[in-house]
Amino acid sequence: MKVLVAVKRVIDYNVKIRIKQDNSGVETDNVKMSMNPFDEIAVEEAIRLKEKNIAEEVIVISIGTDNVQETIRSALAMGADRGILVKTEKELEPLNIAKIIKYFVEKEKSDLTILGKQAIDDDFNQTGQMLAGLLQYPQATFASKVIKENGSLLVTREVDGGLETLKVKLPCIVTTDLRLNEPRYASLPNIMKAKSKAIDIFQLQELNLDLENRLELLEVKGPPERGGTVKMLEGHSDLINVLKNKEGIL
C-alpha cells in the first residue's frame, strides 16, 4: 500500500499571533513556523502503518515556497520515505490545494491519502473532503483510530455521545483528529539521514491545473482587547462574600 500524506507549514501553534497593521493578514516575518499539528498526526499514522508492514512507502507532499522544504524534512526525519514540493508563491484556497493533491494521488497511484482535518491557520476543514469529492473516493474524516482490514480501512471517529466506526474501501481519503496518535520526536541521527532522502520539486505552472481563486480575503482583525481588572481577594471569607453578595452565585 502506498500512502500519501499532505502537510502544511503554519505558524507554530504556541506562538502568539500578531495581525499586520493594514489588516491584510498575520505577521509571519521572524515567526516560528512548524508543521500543522493535525498533519503531524497524519505523518505519524502513515509511519506507523509502514512500521506494521501495512504501508510500503510513505510520501509527503507540501505546497508553497522553498521554506516548505524544512517542513517536508521534518516529516522525512520522523520516518517518511520521500517528499514532493509543489513550488508557488501564490496563496491557494482549499479547492485548489485539493486539485493539486489530486494530481499527485493519481500520479503516484497512492492507495491511502491522509490529511490533517484542518490547518490551524485558516481552520477551513475542507481540503480532505474536496479531495475525496474530486477523486470520487470514499472518505473518513476526523479519524481517531485507523485499522486496515483486507481491502478496506476501519476508521473510528469521535462523534457526539461516543464512537462511530466506518468501513471505507481503498483507495480512500482519511483526515486525522487530535487523538489519533502522539507524534514521535525526530532523533538527530534520523534528521541527518533525512537529508539524503529525495524531495522532488515541481513548479506549480508545470502541472497545468485550473487554479482560479474563488475566495477573496477582505480583512483580518484581532479579537477585541480584553477589558476588566483583576482584584485580589483577601482570604476565603472574602471569596465567599464576593460569590454570595456581588456575583450572586452562592
Binding site: D12, Y13, N14, V15, K32, S34, M35, P37, E40, S74, A77, M78, Y185, A186, S187, L188, P189, I191, M192
Partner: peptide
C-alpha cells in the same frame, strides 16, 4: 551533537521540531 555522536560520547539526541515538543 554530531561531534558528540562521532566521538561516541552521545548515544542519541532529539531536536524539537515545534514549540510543543
Amino acid at each position: 551533537i554530531s561531534k558528540g555522536l562521532n566521538n561516541k560520547i552521545v548515544s542519541d539526541a532529539v531536536v524539537p521540531q515545534n514549540l510543543n515538543q
